[in-house]
Structures are given as C-alpha cells and as structure tokens.
C-alpha cells in the first residue's frame, strides 16, 4: 500500500480491505491490547509505508470496521495497533487470538511533520492512552536523535496502572538526552514519579518556548489545560500540534462522519496545529 489510499502498486480499490494476520497480542493496560500484524499478501509488507500520525481502517470480520491510529515508527518497526475496548467492534477485536485475520485499509490521513521540525526542540505531552498516537513520532524522532534539539516527554495518567507503554518508556529513557517526566493524578504507595496533572510538568521540565514544537494528545480537559499552559510559556499556536479523533466510516473523505466545520479529519487531518483547531468553527 502506498501513502495515498488509491494504491497504484496494488491496483486494488480503496474501499476493499487487505487481509492481515494477528501474529501476536500483548496485554497493555486495562482494556487496551496491542495487536502485531502482518499482511497475508507478502508483497504488501514491502510497500506498506506509513507516516507518523496516520491511521488505518481495521475490519474485524463479522463485527465491522473502525479507525485506529498507527503507533509504529515509519522506519524499522513492527506493524501493530494498540486498541482500547470502547464498543461493539473493538470488543470483538479483543476477543480475537493470535492467528486470527483482520482487514486493513489505509494508511490514511496527513500525519505529523518530521522533516519540517528537524533542528527543533520537540515536546510530547500525552494523557492516558493519548500516548498511543504519539508513539510513532516519538520513536521516529528518537531514531534520528541527532537531528533534533531537546526531546521531552511529559506523560500523565490517572494511576500507575493506567500508564501506556510503560515498559517502552523505560527503554527510551536509556536513550541519551531523552527527558521524561511522568505523573499520576493522585499519590499511591511505591510511586516515585511526579504527582499531579500533566500540565504541571511543563514548568517542571522547563519546556523551552523558542524553536520548539509540542505534540499534544489526551482527553479534552487535559488538552485544554496543556494548551493554556504551553501558550502561557510562550509557544505559538502554530507550533502546538495535535491529532483529533472522530467517528469515521470511510477514511477517504466521503462519508463525512468526521466533518468538523469546514474540515474532514480523515483527509485534512487527523493532525492539526492548534492554530487550525481554533478556527475549525466547531467544538473539537
């Protein structure tokens, strides 16, 4: 598959899924599992290229299709998705076991900037499972550590058991110059990290305002607080970047379920700068 959905190299229709196999399933936090996938059509493994921040449409046979962000890095990473149980289709996905098949369409969407932000400081601010869509960019940027300034992860969750990819964060922390600040909402025994809301980490980390881009993803309340504090620190609205989630049916800009004001999240997004988000003309 190619970055644009109408695949020249497969000659298949953009509305028809490709079949993939679940090679392995990993339990993450409660109600979240990671599914490692590979295409049955081996030709696709080479041609399936993604950009950080893109998403795919995943069919659970007999249940339906849903949109899900892609956590793997575009380079040297295993193809996988991390999915929370939230409804009929994702519930059915969680029932599957290794060896089961799913359908994949995509990748779709614009994706996060990468080349454009080389040379800058990069701050990732995530709340809860908001880390999933940021993972791709984090890994990609860390793979090219030398091309960036400070790289900071500010991550908050309700409690230690709600921290996504904790085992990975531990690995990343070993990478030289990767700064991580992790907090939980309320203190619990044995917790050595920060306590409080994630926006409070901004000052703690002494996030630079100049030559910095921030990637923000998390629930609406957290999002609004983080934006407020980043702006107060001097970040410009066009250097704050987020990815939006919407109800989607087609992924290719046709069904219009994901319309926000004048934009369609599936094709114009899902990645937007805060400047764009402000002018969408609708609640996000």
């Amino acid at each position: 598959m190619c970055e644009k959905g109408n695949c020249e190299n497969t000659n298949r229709a953009v509305t028809i899924p490709e079949i993939a196999t679940i090679d392995e399933i990993k339990d993450e936090i409660e109600d979240v599992k990671t599914f490692y996938l590979s295409f049955d059509d081996k030709k696709l493994d080479g041609s399936f290229r993604i950009k950080s921040g893109q998403f795919i449409m995943c069919t659970v046979f007999g249940a339906g299709e849903f949109a899900v962000s892609l956590p793997p890095s575009p380079e040297n990473d295993r193809f996988h998705i991390s999915v929370r149980k939230v409804g009929k289709v994702t519930d059915a996905l969680h029932e599957l076991t290794a060896g089961d098949k799913v359908g994949i369409r995509g990748p779709f969407g614009n994706g996060f900037p990468f080349d454009e932000i080389k040379g800058k400081n990069v701050v990732y601010v995530a709340g809860g499972i908001g880390l999933i869509p940021l993972r791709s960019s984090i890994v990609h940027v860390l793979q090219h550590r030398e091309d960036f300034g400070r790289i900071i992860l500010l991550y908050g969750a309700r409690s230690p058991k709600d921290l996504m990819y904790e085992y990975m964060i531990e690995k990343w922390q070993k990478i030289d110059g990767f700064e991580t600040f992790i907090s939980i909402d309320n203190p619990v025994d044995g917790w050595k990290g920060e306590v409080g809301f994630v926006n409070q980490l901004i000052e703690k980390a002494n996030v630079p305002a100049e030559n910095t881009v921030a990637f923000v993803c998390g629930p609406p309340v957290m999002f609004n607080n983080v934006i407020r504090d980043l702006m107060a620190r001097g970040l410009k609205d066009d250097s704050i970047i987020s990815t939006l989630e919407r109800h989607m049916k087609c992924g290719i800009g046709k069904c219009q379920h994901c319309a926000i004001g004048r934009t369609l999240v599936c094709t114009d997004g899902p990645v937007y700068t805060y400047r764009q988000i402000k002018t969408l003309g609708e609640q996000i």
Binding site: N6, V14, C250, I252, G253
Partner: peptide, 11 residues
C-alpha cells in the same frame, strides 16, 4: 465530491 477529491471513491 466522490471522484474529484484526494481519493476516488471506487464504488
């Protein structure tokens, strides 16, 4: 709308 945008709706 269906044909003239980024993606072509094949249906």
């Amino acid at each position: 709308f269906f044909i003239g945008q980024e993606f072509t709706d094949d249906v």
